[in-house]
């Protein structure tokens, strides 16, 4: 866990490196903070969706969890992308208090673990690691595509990201949003909503909705070139303080 790992010791792809996006710990911390903002903004909506087919605690639970993640990152940002996600995941498991804690916690921890201890990762590596994380969620919850769960947003997002070689976060965002919207006509087969049987049809799944927020936050974090984000406003934004 300590010590540096030089990334990409293997030769051969050096010529492409200047074109490939490198994602560092600051990028992943920005993803988590952006997600915390989004969860805060949408907490009431998540709770409202959850009150239709669940126990009306999703917004509050997610806000408590991501606020704690933000507070943790305000204290200290771990040195590597993997460590940022593992820290965030651990925080979610310990603070959310509902099923989304272990589910999102597992997603981030497994994704972080799959990223290893490289100081920077490529989009392609992120896509592969996210797939590992999403598969761990599926295994933990015993759910599959079409069960009206967060997987219905996450699986298409991971597919879209992989299809673009890990470069198109916007496509992942669109796929997650579409997947969440497409949970409306589904009947829930997992979680508390499954007790409702056919009455769960016609409602958008709160877990898929929050998962889409998380993917959207990833895309937003990617819109600021890593490394320049905290420096000057090099991206054409006015620097009014």
């Amino acid at each position: 866990m300590s010590g540096k790992v030089t990334n990409g010791g293997a030769g051969g792809s050096g010529a492409r490196d200047e074109g490939a996006q490198r994602l560092d710990a600051a990028f992943f911390a920005r993803w988590m903070r952006t997600a915390a903002d989004a969860v805060r903004r949408e907490a009431d909506r998540l709770t409202e969706l959850d009150s239709a087919i669940g126990d009306a605690d999703h917004g509050g639970n997610m806000r408590r969890g991501f606020d704690a993640v933000r507070a943790e990152l305000d204290e200290d940002v771990p040195a590597t992308p993997g460590a940022v996600l593992m820290t965030a995941g651990r925080k979610l498991v310990s603070t959310v208090g509902g099923a989304s804690g272990p589910l999102y916690g597992t997603l981030l921890r497994r994704t972080g673990k799959a990223l290893g201890d490289a100081e920077q990762v490529t989009g392609e590596e992120l896509a592969g690691a996210l797939r590992t994380g999403v598969e761990a969620v599926a295994q933990l919850g015993g759910a599959a595509a079409g069960d009206k769960t967060m997987l219905d947003a996450l699986l298409p997002a991971v597919e879209a990201l992989a299809d673009s070689g890990g470069t198109d976060l916007g496509a992942a965002r669109a796929a997650a949003e579409r997947g969440a919207e497409e949970t409306v006509p589904l009947q829930a087969r997992k979680g508390r909503a499954s007790y409702l049987g056919e009455r769960s049809i016609g409602h958008r799944d709160p877990g898929a909705t929050s998962a889409a927020l998380l993917v959207a936050a990833l895309a937003e974090a990617g819109q600021v070139p890593s490394g320049e984000a905290d420096a000057a406003g090099g991206t054409g934004t006015e620097g009014g303080a």
Partner: peptide
């Protein structure tokens, strides 16, 4: 629900 999932996540 979350009781089962939390224990499973802790074990995993």
């Amino acid at each position: 629900g979350s009781a089962v999932l939390t224990v499973k996540a802790l074990l995993a």
